[in-house]
Design a protein around this nucleic acid. Structure first.
Lengths: 167, 167
DNA sequence: CTTTCTGCAAACGATTTGCAGCAGC
DNA sequence: GCTGCTGCAAATCGTTTGCAGAAAG
C-alpha cells in the first residue's frame, strides 16, 4: 500500500459507512504533519463532524454539529480549505446557497450523490462496479478529444424522502 | 410531439451541434409568450450567444460575446434567470468563480460535460446510449431509498487541451 | 396607453483575509 | 520561545434587487 488509507479499496463499490475513527484520525494527522501542519483541536473537530455526517455538509451544519466546540466560522472555513489542500476533505458544489464538504474519497471510498432539488440535501450513493467500469470506457473518448480525465462525478437529482409531499 | 422541440429526440445520444436558429427562436418565443413574457431584444441576444457558444458560458463570456448589443450585467443576469424559469436555459454550477449557463436540454439534446480543473472551461460531451441506459438501472435503487429521481448529471474532470502543459 | 423591460447603483450574502493574541511542541 | 492557529471584524466579489425611465404591443 502506497500510503495509509482508511478504507479498503477492494473494489466492492460500497463504502464502509461510519469509517473507523481511530484509523481516520491517524491518517489525517499523518497527512497534515507531512505538510508540516498541526492536527489542532478545531481541525480534529471538523474531521469528526464530517465523519459522523456520512454525507456532504454545509458550513452551518458543520458549525452546529460541532457545537460543544465553539468553532468560529472563519476558522471552520480556513480549516476546511487547508484540509482540502492536504487531500483530507473534498468540496462538493451542489449549486445552492452554501458549498458542501465531505471527507476525501481516499478516506471514505468512491461514491456518488443524490441531490434534493427541493431542500438541497445531498446523500451518498454507491453504484455497482459494472457502472464504474462503463465510465472507464468513456474516458478514452474524452482523451481522443484532447481532454485528460482525472476523475468524474455523477449525481442524481430529485426529491429526498422528506421533500416528497411539499411542492 | 407534445410541444415544439427544436432537437429530434431520436435517442442517438449526440446533439446536432449548432441547433437550427430559426426553430430555436420560434420555440423560445413561444415559451416566453406562454408565460406572458416578451421576447425582447436583449433576451434574444442572450439566447443567440448561448446557441453559438455550444458549451456552458459564464456571464462575462456572455457579455463579451454579445458585444454589439451593449447588454447591462444586471439585465443579463435577470434575463438568464427568467429564461431558466421558462425552461429555456439551464444553470450549470462548475464550482469555480462564476456560474455557467447553457440552453436547456429540451433545445439542445441531453449531454454531459468535460470540466477543466485548471481553467474552469466546460465543454459538452455526448455519451453512448448504452451508458444512459445503465443510468436508468440506478434510478430504481435510488427510488428504493425513498428518493424520487428527476434527472442526473455526469461530468468528467480533468485538463482541457490548452491546459495540458501548464501545471 | 399600459405593461413589461432595462440600466444604474445600491444591497446581499457566502467566503476570504489582515491582524493581534493564544496554543502546540 | 518559536511557529503556526484562532477569533474578530473588515474586505471581496459574484449575484440580486429597487427604482425611474424606455420599449413592446
Amino acid at each position: 500500500m502506497s500510503e495509509g488509507s482508511v478504507v479498503e479499496t477492494d473494489g466492492s463499490g460500497s463504502h464502509p459507512d461510519p469509517v473507523d475513527l481511530e484509523d481516520l484520525h491517524v491518517t489525517v494527522g499523518r497527512r497534515l504533519r507531512a505538510a508540516s501542519m498541526r492536527y489542532s483541536r478545531s481541525r480534529f473537530s471538523v474531521v469528526e463532524v464530517l465523519a459522523a455526517g456520512c454525507r456532504p455538509l454545509t458550513l452551518p451544519e458543520i458549525l452546529s454539529a460541532g457545537d460543544g466546540y465553539g468553532l468560529a466560522q472563519s476558522s471552520a472555513y480556513r480549516n476546511l480549505g487547508e484540509l482540502v489542500e492536504v487531500g483530507v476533505v473534498r468540496r462538493v458544489e451542489a449549486g445552492y446557497d452554501h458549498s458542501r464538504f465531505e471527507l476525501h474519497e481516499s478516506l471514505t471510498g468512491h461514491h456518488h450523490h443524490l441531490v434534493c432539488v427541493e431542500c438541497g440535501r445531498v446523500d451518498d450513493f454507491e453504484v455497482p462496479d459494472e457502472f464504474e467500469a462503463g465510465i472507464e470506457g468513456l474516458v478514452g473518448e474524452a482523451v481522443a478529444r484532447g481532454f485528460s480525465v482525472e476523475s468524474h462525478r455523477f449525481d442524481m437529482l430529485g426529491r429526498c424522502s422528506s421533500c416528497h409531499g411539499n411542492v
